[in-house]
Amino acid sequence: MIRLTIDGEPIEVQEGRTLLEACREHDIPIPTLCYHPALKPYGACRLCVVELDHPSGSSKLVASCVHPCEEGAVVRTNSEAVKRNRRVTAELLLAGAFDAPEIVALAKGLGVEEPRFRMEESESCVLCGLCVRACDEIVGVRAISLIHRGMAKKVATPFEISSATCIGCGTCVLICPTGRLKLSDVTGYRGVHPWDNTFHRLYCRVCDDEDLRETRLQEATDLIADMEASE
């Protein structure tokens, strides 16, 4: 066990936990955007910053989602520096995604109503990387990635054409906090916007899932055959 102090309270956590996990375990609220319990921490949104005191008397802001708990650490989650930093971060996020309810609510919770900045051509994407990481870590197909860099950076499929590996599961759409990705359902087809992939819908008799993809049918049939053979 590791002992540390968070907001003046002595706390014990298991080794290997991050500061954010320790705080969540002890019901200390920390706002997050790019963090998802099912995914590896990414440290992109910087909303989860906390102040870490150094024995020399100085302190620094660290992203709690990626910072490990260390023995004897003194952490403040709600100091003025932390609050100020989070407010600016929220303003910047809001500048690019002012029409995304989840971002607006997050900013409001931090005391930001109207951002000082506004991006002219906003596509609402805040580059949190949730969709890309979910496609990799949860679905395992890695159909999308963050391409280009700087201002041109965006989420896209290779060559920005419909992807050959996308299975149309819609996980990227479900996990997106800004609504930039939309699942547009067309009768008989399922399109995952904006990858331009459309899939024929098939009906699965086992799980009642309407969204079985055509190419998945063979995989499922093979899987069942394998299972029966091994029995």
Partner: peptide, 25 residues
């Protein structure tokens, strides 16, 4: 060339999305 990105992905076992990200970065 696009062919090169696809071949490199297949041969090196890197997902095409990753190769494309590197090539554009």
């Amino acid at each position: 060339p696009p062919e090169a990105l696809i071949l490199a992905s297949e041969r090196l076992g890197v997902p095409l999305s990753q190769t494309y990200a590197v090539a554009t970065f």
